[in-house]
């Protein structure tokens, strides 16, 4: 039995074959492989998603290990390559495309061509805005995040439905700054809420 089958066999305890096939047929783009993106990716792979496009030009640093799905021996590697290795341990038969170039307004549609869903997982607000403009009111479901720094009550991170194809997760206020760093719990909550929207969408319940 391959590892793919091990994950899939386990998933069939929780999903019907029809449900799992719906999840597996959904192509997801993840813009950024940092705190949000790496945690969304592992949530989605554990949920049965197989078709992922992940883009990030950055390399793993020691300061990422507090919240991102990487390990100390991966410091210095391209995030997309380290993530490929980690996700492949869960499911060695992923259809994973990676891009290690900076995402811009000019290349975003090409990179995420064919995706039904795009997860905005950037760090910088200007990049979040750029990606949102690229896919606003398109056919794509866009799931963004804003406001997740620090350790205030994590229940303040909510899911806002801006319109049927655009959701924003977060508290809309907590910006990363000195004294309000990005920490594992709130970043993971935001990524989990983004991933949950994608799962609900794939199962036809969003």
């Amino acid at each position: 039995m391959t590892q793919q089958n091990i994950l899939r066999t386990g998933l069939l305890r929780y999903f019907t074959e029809v449900q799992l096939e719906r999840i597996e047929s959904c192509r997801i783009g993840i813009a950024g492989a940092g705190g949000l993106g790496s945690n969304c990716a592992v949530n989605l792979v554990r949920s049965g998603f197989r078709q992922l496009i992940i883009a990030d030009y950055d390399r793993v640093e020691a300061t990422n290990l507090n919240r991102q799905f990487f390990f100390p021996d991966q410091v210095g590697q391209l995030k997309v390559e380290a993530l490929r290795a980690n996700l492949s341990k869960l499911n060695p038969e992923l259809e994973l495309q990676t891009f290690s170039e900076r995402i811009t307004a000019e290349n975003a549609r090409r990179i995420f061509d064919g995706c039904q869903v795009i997860i905005e997982a950037f760090d910088q607000p200007e990049e979040k805005r750029m990606l949102t403009e690229c896919f606003y009111r398109s056919e794509v479901l866009l799931v963004a995040a804003s406001g997740l720094a620090g350790w205030q009550n994590a229940d303040l991170l909510v899911t806002r439905r801006i319109h049927p194809r655009f959701y924003v997760v977060g508290d809309a206020e907590s910006e990363v700054s000195t004294g309000s760093p990005p920490c594992a719990p709130r970043v993971a909550v935001a990524a989990a809420k983004q991933s949950n929207l994608v799962l609900a969408y794939a199962l036809g319940e969003l």
């Binding site: 705190g35 607000p125 979040k128 804003s146 406001g147 977060g170 809309a172 990363v176």
Partner: peptide, 10 residues
Amino acid sequence: VLAVTFVGGG
């Protein structure tokens, strides 16, 4: 008019 303003962190 609807404004969606992003803050940094991810």
